[in-house]
Nucleic acid binder design. Sequence first.
DNA 1: CTGAAAGCGCTAACAT
DNA 2: ATGTTAGCGCTTTCAG
Lengths: 337, 337
Amino acid sequence: MGKLTIKDIAKEFNVSISTVSKALNDSYEISEATKSKIQKYAKEHNYKPNFNALSLKNRSTKTIGIIIPTMLKYFFAQVFKGIEKTALERGYKVIACISNESYTKEVEIIEMLSNGSIDGFILSMSKETELKKEFNHFKETIENGTPIVMFDRVAAPIDCDKIITDDFNGALNTVEHLYKTGHKNIAFVSTLSNLHIGEQRLLGYKKGLENVGLPFNEKLVVNILDKDYKEYEAILIPFYKENKIDGVITTGESAAVAAMKAGLKSGLEIPKDLSVIAFSNGILARHSSPKMTTISQHGEQMGETAAKILIDKLEKKHTEIVTKVIKTDLVIRDSSR
Amino acid sequence: MGKLTIKDIAKEFNVSISTVSKALNDSYEISEATKSKIQKYAKEHNYKPNFNALSLKNRSTKTIGIIIPTMLKYFFAQVFKGIEKTALERGYKVIACISNESYTKEVEIIEMLSNGSIDGFILSMSKETELKKEFNHFKETIENGTPIVMFDRVAAPIDCDKIITDDFNGALNTVEHLYKTGHKNIAFVSTLSNLHIGEQRLLGYKKGLENVGLPFNEKLVVNILDKDYKEYEAILIPFYKENKIDGVITTGESAAVAAMKAGLKSGLEIPKDLSVIAFSNGILARHSSPKMTTISQHGEQMGETAAKILIDKLEKKHTEIVTKVIKTDLVIRDSSR
DNA sequence: CTGAAAGCGCTAACAT
DNA sequence: ATGTTAGCGCTTTCAG
């Protein structure tokens, strides 16, 4: 069954391979008669032009490499979905690789794919890469002519297309919303204080407080780093004891779940005494009790946008470098009043 | 920057391309002197053999195609992780595609990749495919010499390697466990009654009842099909009213969350009055309140096994067709006594 | 020890 | 309207 080739078809009809090639590509040079018989035969025998031969000839693989820190976080799975969908619609395949938050793995993946396997990258940095601030692997691949589109966790110094969440305004708007709905003591619980997106959310929180005229109180910022989600609750219970809190913004779902549980254990009713709102997009939020009010991140849209921008660039539909900001939405559920 | 080729290196040293090729492959035919200078140069200039040229020559791409119904379910994301990890370790890339539970999409993906893009497939059928029982696309690709490994949702009539969860014993053991811990009225809530894995779980449930000497009562089986998870609760509340239930086994997390909420609303304490145990593996289970006892499915291990089997087959390390059964584990948390 | 040449499957410029 | 040829980047006989 070793795949039908153009050569086989040529032999079948006693014509040259170039006649077959042209016939299959519907060239005006070939007579209708030969074209139709060759095309018919090809269809019947399920002929498919060999991918590697084409890629070799065209110097283009119609495939994009995706590097993401994990597929187990709903957000990244959503982005992946958006990329895959858009890519397929435009005739591209995706090679998906997981960096597992490791710098080394990220480098290895880029090495592995930088041999003509892919036409361009869509990626979100590993935590380790962001902490090390070691971006040479990105710089080099761009210099070597392979475009990169970064999303969510992007490297500021690298000159490439970027898709980011509007973290700053997401947090800011949430503070304003909480203020309008009668909250005065709003805490900020972050598990991402070492990442740029964590900083942006904190800045938005501060600016939000300023906008509504609430004082910023350092004590109401809780940074939880390198802890398992199981420990979150134990950290927050004393926090509630020491501070009179009526609103909490968290940078993620797990922290929000913990914030709610700790609140309940501290005798706070949700949302009567305490509102909890999380940066999040999905699964846990909708199933927690009470259901969580979220600053929703539109992962799928992010993926679609990233794919569109990369493919447009590959197909020379644009050349300038852009940064797209994806707005967040506040989705009110039951954990806030 | 257009990628360094063997030809460029040949020119650099005024030797032929075949000398370079041999030198890079450390052939005994080439003198140490030339070898080392060529290898040095190649390394310094970051030479990488062109992927498509190699694939064309070797008739092997070292990449595997993955087709899964969705990436948004934790189980599938876990399997993907296992596949990707194992593949990478063994020098393979993965092209990941989402069928979105659609038969047509599945066929299109297979078509698209059956042109020498991949050496083999790892897949889990779409629901639509399973319902239609339309497996010709699988049959044909196997006949065309492209091996397939199926996992979780497998097509019985198709003769290929398979990795399945031990759904039957998972359910059976759970019933026995519930019985031993004092439960007498055990319900089975399924959202998968139209799928083979749903049947297996039901059969295991029945056999479990038989083993411990409890009667099977049709009324205690609740089939929920084509409903949004938001409706589950409303279905279960009357069910609890009409039937005296002290244990529930569900086929998934969402149903378990609903079963717990409905229980609480019906005045049942968990786990004192009601135990809820779900087929599941992760995220929701650990964050629900109370935390969910689960029949855990080991998605990652499933992925690793699938990748190993496919790659072994591709590399002719085995030829026979196997079916691997992955055991489940009962992970006791707070929703059962 | 090194090189020439064929071939993997395909396209396209250039004959005929 | 059809065929010949070169070439994409690489490996591998076969010759020297």
